[in-house]
Design a protein around this nucleic acid. Structure first.
Lengths: 342, 342
DNA sequence: CTGAAAGCGCTTACAG
DNA sequence: CTGAAAGCGCTTACAG
């Protein structure tokens, strides 16, 4: 009754009905309301009907914060991305969101982890919300951050690359193998002076490693200056192509870490009257829609952006449900898409 | 002590330290720990030091679900988008996320509201989480859904369009005025047979209205068949352009509801050898980066995608803080970007 | 099939 | 500057 005193004192416009209010209207108790909502088969049909009627009459929406606290299940999945303003990551968020929504859970989105310090801070904040599982784009490198995630005591998925030593699960494809495969492809097309252009994030670095390894196997040297871009944009791709041609006139192929850069390069070639693939072959990675719409159409690596998100969420949900997950490592693969530009 | 019995019985690996554990280690009480963390200036320096030491030693991360329940502030902002796989909306999410993170709150993302029924279901679920504020892309039409949001008792922002009767706040630009302005621009360029191509969502409809009004003012009739696209993609833009030319051979300008469609049309024209803007002028809306990189560069409407998200979050945060918000309507405007295609 | 009791882990007044 | 008491709104065993 301390409760009802408080209620009459505090409640006002904007306050929402609680489970007790529903119970009172339905002529039952809170626990039965909770059951009618979550395990309807355990409640008599008539009771259930009355409860649902009361719920509708009051516009009752259960407080999920209270629910989370009591049940120790938040029904939240957290996803951390470097940036959402990158269409491949947006596709991953889309896939993740679709699976989360289908399962009736909710998505907490953290953004801004191109810097390792912000990654740790962001994840600490997310862990505070006690999500039922956490996915993060990239392999988590800092020991401190790995420990933080392990201690969270929930399923964890590192996504968008592979590693033999995930914190828990890893879902993605081998960026190194993708870099390797595209480089071999270019070698197979007769190219001998192949350059790589990309940023400095981990995934670009892995692609670059694969590129270097493939060149080594073929007995080739890098075909150009080591061009690094600071941002991923069409303009950056254009500038990188010009810089490359200037620094390494003999270059006959440019492999870009992402399609956005490659598309920029393609546009620059067209404007400068540089024949593609005659003078130089251009290849990308990502298989954006624009890649196949340009002419020459872009030769690229198709990567499973949407599926990475979707599958990661599904595996995490399976873990939460207590199902065994076959393997800690899920390799979704990639595919070389040979078009006209290389 | 019921507490400690439970504790010794239940706690195990994966359990996390609670505020009580921190208090015990620091030689103080939970309430002081809470204060040391949230209002450090109200705690003696020495006490604060001990608390922070204990927090670090235990790796304590406050449970935000408990915090939310007790304080009635979740520190969550919810954002609902039709789809995230659309770069203009991704930019809005980006801006929203940046502002939310800067304020130390978290972002709950709901996706999939091109259908009104899913919008209601999604919002109901989000309201259950008791976010401190809610933003939704689009003007909420259903009375039932508007009522749901009003009853949530928190600041609400409808974003990406304007209305004189928002539920609470509205942040965006006039899609109708943008459609109107671009149409007038095309008329000013001497075009007399102007077609509009877009989808069926509310924003496209508003742009189409503006287009129709501008034509009427100029004494012109629609310059083509009423072409509706089912999806927003470069391919859809290509197909729409072909359909338009076939259905309305006299057309001399095509205004696309979004840049993605316009870019597709531009690519199609290039491949079909149709002169732009000689034979037909092409205009879009969105000002994607690709729009200015193509040649001919795309004439378009620049819209404040990122700023809509950022400003909406900032206004909502101001409301939460109890600050007065100057106006319920925030018009961020748009800008006609005249390039080569029209 | 239904309910009484206890507790989830915090914070909010209220005192001192 | 610090603490005892109560409560936020649910769910989890445990009984019957």
């Amino acid at each position: 009754m301390g409760r009802s005193i408080t209620a009459s004192r505090v409640r006002s416009t904007g306050d929402r009905p609680r489970i007790e209010d529903v119970a009172a209207l339905a002529g039952t108790t809170a626990i039965t309301v909770s059951r009618a909502l979550h395990r309807p088969e355990k409640v008599a049909a008539e009771t259930r009907r009355k409860v649902l009627e009361a719920v509708a009459a009051l516009g009752y929406i259960p407080n999920l914060a209270a629910s989370a606290l009591a049940s120790r299940r938040s029904r939240i999945l957290a996803l951390v991305v470097p940036t959402i303003a990158n269409s491949v990551f947006a596709d991953t968020v889309h896939g993740f969101s679709d699976a989360v929504t289908a399962a009736g859970l909710q998505l907490l989105l953290g953004q801004g982890t191109y810097a390792p310090e912000t990654e740790h801070r962001l994840l600490t904040a997310l862990v505070g919300r006690r999500p039922d599982a956490i996915a993060v784009i990239g392999i988590v490198r800092r020991t401190e951050t790995r420990e933080l995630l392990r201690r969270a005591g929930v399923p964890i998925a590192e996504i968008w690359d592979l590693t033999a030593t995930p914190i828990d699960l890893v879902v993605g494809f081998s960026n190194r193998a993708a870099g390797h495969a595209m480089t071999r492809f270019l070698v197979g097309r007769g190219r001998r002076h192949i350059a790589f252009v990309g940023g400095d994030d981990d995934r670009a670095a892995a692609r670059r490693d694969g590129y270097a390894a493939a060149l080594g196997e073929s007995g080739l040297a890098p075909g150009g200056a080591d061009i690094r871009v600071a941002d991923i944009s069409y303009g950056a791709g254009r500038r990188a192509l010009r810089a490359l041609l200037e620094a390494a006139p003999a270059v006959d192929a440019a492999f870009f870490a992402t399609d956005v850069l490659a598309v920029g390069a393609l546009l620059e070639c067209r404007e400068m009257g540089i024949a593609v693939p005659g003078r130089i072959a251009i290849a990308g990675l990502g298989d954006l829609e624009i890649a196949r719409e340009l002419s020459p159409a872009l030769t690229t690596v198709r990567v499973p952006s949407y599926d990475i998100g979707r599958r990661a969420a599904e595996l995490l949900l399976a873990r939460i449900a207590g199902d065994a997950v076959a393997s800690a490592v899920t390799d979704l693969g990639f595919e070389i898409i040979a078009r006209e530009s290389a």
